[in-house]
Simulated scan of single mutants.
Amino acid sequence: MQNEFLISAKQQFEYYKNLAEKTFSRLTDEQLNWKYNEESNSIAIIAKHMVGNMLSRWTDVFTTDGEKEWRMRDGEFEEELLTRVVLLEKWERGWQCFYEVLDNLSVEDLDRTIYIRKEPWTVTAAINRQLAHYPYHVGQIVFIGKMVCDANWESLSIPKKVK
């Protein structure tokens, strides 16, 4: 039997993954790469960062630190014009890595210690950390999508009542 925490966490991650994907689907390639200003991130940059985080944190999670030497975190924030196709390929690769770990965790694994930036975390705490991190960025993705679509934005939840 699978742990209720894992079932609930997976449902939450899937919900936020779908929100981002619904936003992606409403935007052109140009809009996916749009930035409010030079200090801002585009949706493509935010998604690229999330993928880098997923791959780093969840690859070999029990045998290596979650901040991999091969990860170039600063490079995730460099502007790179991505097509929807390339963006979605990266996006799926990150989620696949993460879900592969989640799908294979046992109840006993939840209390195991893993390391992120040399700090010890239980697997439960690391999952909770991601339950805060990923929705934070998905919120940014949705907000930027709403900004670029302006009046053409279609609500992803319950639309406001128009008077």
Rank of each mutant, 00 (worst) to 15 (best):
M1I: 13
M1P: 12
Q2C: 10
N3C: 13
N3V: 06
E4W: 02
E4H: 11
F5H: 04
L6W: 06
A9M: 04
Q11M: 10
Q11N: 10
Q12H: 14
Q12F: 03
F13R: 08
E14P: 02
Y16D: 04
Y16A: 04
K17H: 12
K17Q: 14
N18V: 02
L19D: 01
K22R: 07
F24P: 04
S25D: 14
R26F: 00
L27N: 02
T28K: 02
T28A: 02
D29F: 06
D29P: 08
N33L: 09
K35E: 01
E38Q: 12
E39M: 04
S40E: 04
S42C: 08
S42K: 08
I43T: 09
I43Q: 04
I43R: 11
A44Y: 01
K48L: 05
M50N: 05
M50D: 05
G52T: 07
G52P: 08
M54W: 09
M54H: 12
L55S: 09
L55I: 12
S56C: 06
T59I: 10
V61H: 01
F62Q: 14
F62H: 09
F62M: 06
F62I: 15
T63P: 06
T63F: 13
T64I: 06
D65W: 03
K68I: 07
W70L: 02
W70E: 13
R71D: 00
R73N: 06
R73H: 08
D74F: 05
D74K: 09
E76T: 03
E78K: 13
E79R: 01
E79M: 01
E80F: 12
L81N: 12
T83Y: 12
R84A: 15
V85C: 09
V86S: 14
V86I: 11
V86Y: 04
V86C: 06
L88Q: 14
L88H: 02
E89Q: 15
E89V: 12
R93Y: 03
W95Q: 02
C97D: 12
C97L: 02
Y99F: 15
V101P: 03
L102S: 05
L102D: 06
D103V: 11
D103C: 09
N104D: 11
L105P: 08
L105M: 04
L105S: 10
E108H: 10
D109M: 10
L110Y: 13
R112C: 08
T113A: 04
I116A: 14
K118F: 12
E119Q: 12
P120Q: 14
V123P: 03
V123A: 07
V123R: 05
A126K: 08
I127P: 00
I127Y: 07
N128L: 14
N128D: 11
N128C: 07
R129A: 03
A132C: 05
H133V: 00
H133F: 02
Y134P: 03
P135L: 07
V138Q: 00
G139Y: 03
G139A: 01
G139K: 05
Q140R: 01
Q140N: 10
Q140F: 00
Q140T: 00
I141N: 01
I144Y: 02
M147E: 07
C149Q: 15
D150Y: 10
D150V: 05
W153N: 03
W153H: 11
E154Q: 06
S155F: 05
L156Q: 09
L156E: 04
I158Q: 10
K161M: 08
V162A: 08
V162T: 15
